[in-house]
Computed example of a mutant assay.
Amino acid sequence: MRSIYKCVICGSYTEDTVHCGVQTKLLLNGKLRSRLSHLMTYLLRHNPGAVNLSMDREGWVGIDELVNALRSRWDPKALSWLTKEHVIAVALLDPKGRFEIRNGMIRARYGHSKSLNVDIKYEVDSKVKTLYHGTTKEALVRIMREGIKPMNRKYVHLVLDPRDAYEVAIRHGNDVVILVVNADCLRKGGQQVLIATDRIRLVHYVPPQCIESVMNPRN
């Protein structure tokens, strides 16, 4: 990941070395940013109990509590540098909008494990027509028979851009395909298409008949 800098004029967090016409100050290098982002994702999506975080029904955790938990209970020596500002900067600049901050609280916007029983009220998307889901060719036969299931997560994640679907799929193998999903088909089946971020939509399940086609990204 790219390093995070802070503007010495306006105080904004940025990935650029120049802001407001002047040199910015390094806040977090790319390696530490990546490590902190993965830790935040793991705790806020899957296992807040690993550091005894108090998460409410909507997935919110106090930022101060998160920082203190990471510094005192996760890895005190390795994370002695961590401050509230680092957590806020990582959240605000996350390229996929994984995190949301409000009134001193932070949560993951999507991707929660079913076991957390988190219930976030998402806005409904009634307009989008086509969505995409990346997967491996190895999983394709099963998906075309059984549909796309959320597995151990609360929702199936779909995206608006096939390039984002490819980026997700390639993490699981080199031989990948992009599934084209008909959003109106999902709605006709009684499902709501939920807005997680400006790039990601959530549904409970994608039945095989709502998969319009399979794209080979290498063609």
Rank of each mutant, 00 (worst) to 15 (best):
A91T: 08
D94R: 03
D75L: 02
W74N: 04
G62R: 14
D94G: 07
H86D: 08
N68L: 11
D56N: 12
D56R: 03
L92T: 01
D94L: 09
R71G: 05
A91H: 02
D64K: 15
K77C: 00
D64C: 08
R71Q: 11
N68D: 15
A69S: 15
V90G: 01
S72D: 13
N68T: 12
D56I: 08
T83M: 06
I88F: 12
A78M: 07
M55L: 13
G59Y: 05
D64W: 11
M55N: 01
S80T: 00
V87R: 02
W81F: 15
D75F: 02
D56T: 08
V90P: 01
L92N: 04
E85N: 03
N68R: 08
W81G: 01
L79G: 00
E58Y: 11
W60C: 11
D75W: 00
D75A: 05
L82I: 10
L92H: 00
G62V: 11
V61P: 10
A91F: 10
K77E: 14
W74L: 07
V87K: 09
M55E: 06
V90A: 01
W81T: 03
S72Y: 04
I88R: 14
S54H: 12
N68F: 05
D75Y: 02
W81H: 06
T83S: 15
L79N: 14
I88C: 13
V61T: 07
V67L: 02
D94N: 14
D75S: 11
W74R: 04
A78E: 12
M55R: 06
S72P: 00
R57L: 13
A78I: 01
G59R: 00
V61G: 08
I88T: 15
S72T: 13
A91L: 07
L92E: 14
K77L: 09
R71D: 04
R57Q: 11
K77I: 05
D94K: 07
I63T: 12
G62Q: 10
I63K: 07
V90C: 02
N68S: 13
R73F: 05
K84H: 14
R71I: 10
D56M: 08
L66I: 10
S54P: 03
L93G: 08
L82P: 00
L66F: 11
D56G: 03
S54Q: 13
L70F: 05
G62Y: 10
V67W: 07
L79C: 07
M55H: 03
W74Q: 04
M55F: 12
K84L: 09
L53K: 03
L66H: 04
